[in-house]
Design a binder for these strands. Sequence first.
DNA 1: TGCCTGATCGGCT
DNA 2: GCCGATCAGGCAC
Length: 174
Amino acid sequence: KILLNRIGGTWRGGRIVETEAYLGKDDPASHAARRKTPRNSVMFGPPGRAYIYFIYGNYYCFNAVAHDGLAGAVLVRALEPLYDLDGMRRARGNCKDLLLCKGPGRLCMALEITKNYNGCDLSGGDLVIARDKNYVIPQEISCGGRIGIQEGKLLPLRFCYKDNRYISRPPVKV
DNA sequence: TGCCTGATCGGCT
DNA sequence: GCCGATCAGGCAC
């Protein structure tokens, strides 16, 4: 799929090449591992919405809510830039094109995704996940450990195109 | 109330 | 590979 944000009438975004799954109470790394709070409430709601949170005092991370009836979401960790690269370059400052969307914080900067989008429906607004019309040949997808966490790090819940140059880090064996 | 940790990045060594 | 910036949430007390 592709992730797009319409900014000033221009669609900006790219192909989703790296994701991580976060489950509910059985996943200690998930924000939904414990009770529902104002911060994580979107993860407990209907699927197809954006769950966006602020992290490390500096960055945003974008997730798509997944399960219906169960808490869960998919973190989008990297995009292959496809649309409005000039807009991404402006939003990211002086940065190599390879790095525009290479990481969850970076892709939110490039697409100007902030907590203002938390809870929005991803199927028909400005921020959308859409079918990739240029998707042709399925690349090999690897499955491994998630990045940046301690608890739950042995669960094989990170998925990325194996040899895509835009993924944030190589696959992690678990 | 206070302390600690974290789904990160960029700069520096 | 290491480290600081920077802050919200979770938890102990």
